[in-house]
């Protein structure tokens, strides 16, 4: 991993930057002041117990969930601004969900092609070429004409990744993308993500795959009850966690 090079000067080169982000659902505070910076090409993993606000954090970054307080800047765009162009933002940030959420009435290839054609208004033939290329990239050549219902969970998730990539985002976010998968298909999805990271894609992952986080991440953030408890390179965070809460969590999951 290119961890060493990107660690310094993050704040100047940040693609995603959060400052003191707060979010509550009713009386429940889900994010209690989150600040973080993700540099271009960085791979950041967010770990922590369920309900610690990890998924909400990702949804705030692409404005699926509005924040209560704080500032989020993505690729030079202020997400928290009231004049935000959501369409422009979401072209820069792709997100893949735990439940894949492919469109079941469209084939795999059509799933990948839909957004570039109808949202970006790009030429159909061009898009089809790109889509086929992306299907190859996620190692699903030959499955273009399959409907989501005919694919395994792992295959569907890789189509979802290709669908997101078709928008040519600058940042990819993965929200527990392997949590709903059979163990044997987890690996193929992780391989796809690993290859993306190696290509230099900026990635933010919420994950329970500690081994994968340790291997792939430049930095790991441990969150609990809406705050970042501690963060650092995986070697440090997994090897010698400073906070007792981190230690306790890692003891449970490792």
């Amino acid at each position: 991993m290119a961890a060493g090079g990107t660690m310094s000067g993050i704040s100047g080169d940040a693609v995603v930057s959060l400052r003191d982000v707060h979010k509550s659902f009713g009386a429940t505070e889900v994010l209690g002041g989150i600040s973080m910076d993700v540099g271009r090409g960085d791979v950041v993993c967010i770990i922590g117990p369920s309900g610690s606000g990890k998924s909400t954090l990702l949804r705030c970054i692409n404005a699926l969930v509005p924040v209560d307080r704080g500032e989020i800047v993505v690729a030079g765009m202020t997400v928290t601004s009231p004049t935000l162009d959501k369409l422009a933002l979401r072209r820069k940030v792709g997100i893949v969900f735990q439940q894949y959420n492919l469109f079941p009435h469209k084939t795999a290839l059509q799933n990948v092609m839909m957004a570039p054609i109808h949202v970006l208004k790009r030429d159909r033939r061009e898009v089809e070429e790109l889509a086929r290329q992306l299907m190859r990239k996620v190692r699903l050549s030959g499955k273009e004409a399959c409907y989501p219902g005919e694919l395994s969970g792992g295959q569907q998730q890789r189509v979802a990744i290709a669908r997101s990539l078709a928008m040519k985002p600058e940042v990819m976010m993965f929200d527990e993308v392997t949590a709903a998968l059979d163990p044997e298909t987890v690996k193929e999805v992780l391989t796809t993500i690993r290859e993306l990271a190696e290509d230099g894609m900026t990635c933010m992952l919420v994950t329970h795959e500690m081994g994968f986080a340790r291997e792939i991440a430049d930095r790991v953030y441990f969150t609990d009850r809406g705050v970042i408890v501690e963060h650092g390179p995986p070697k440090e965070l997994f090897g010698s966690p400073r906070d007792p809460r981190t230690r306790e969590f890692l003891e449970h999951v490792l």
Binding site: F97, Q99, N101
Partner: peptide, 17 residues
């Protein structure tokens, strides 16, 4: 399912699309 709306929104589809 709500996930269909969410993923469509994440891909920048407008509400009527």
């Amino acid at each position: 399912p709500a996930g269909q709306w969410e993923s469509a929104e994440a891909l920048s589809f407008t509400r009527s699309q």
